[in-house]
């Protein structure tokens, strides 16, 4: 069975004390962001553990990822779009693709 790297990212991220990360996506890079939330896949084998990540700046994270009107701040990205993630805590890189 193929290793589920969304779970690796999940475990690794929430084990960090300093949680800022850089996320490389096709054609662009999200720098110095935090994971605000995540959407889980199903409990069968079709989906990865996490299918989408909600990421944003410190300010977005502080407000829980939404503004005073309840509209979303930050960005929702598909796990399948992530190329690699760099953890600022120890400068390690997790290659997703």
């Amino acid at each position: 069975m193929k290793r589920d790297l969304s779970k690796t990212l999940f475990d690794r991220y929430f084990a960090c004390k300093e949680r800022h990360i850089d996320i490389e996506l096709p054609g662009r890079m999200l720098q110095h962001v935090l994971i605000i939330g995540f959407f889980k896949g199903g409990d069968d084998s079709e989906d990865p553990y996490i299918i989408q990540w909600h990421v944003g700046s410190d300010c977005d994270a502080m407000q829980g990822g939404q503004d005073a009107w309840g509209l979303q701040t930050g960005e929702i990205i598909q796990h399948s779009d992530i190329l690699r993630v760099r953890f600022e805590e120890d400068n390690t890189i997790l290659e997703i693709k």
Binding site: I36, G37, F38, F39, G41
Partner: peptide, 15 residues
């Protein structure tokens, strides 16, 4: 139910 679960956002309780 699967679709409904997919749109359930989880956050870090610690925060």
């Amino acid at each position: 139910r699967k679709i409904s679960n997919r749109f359930t956002k989880f956050i870090d309780l610690g925060r």
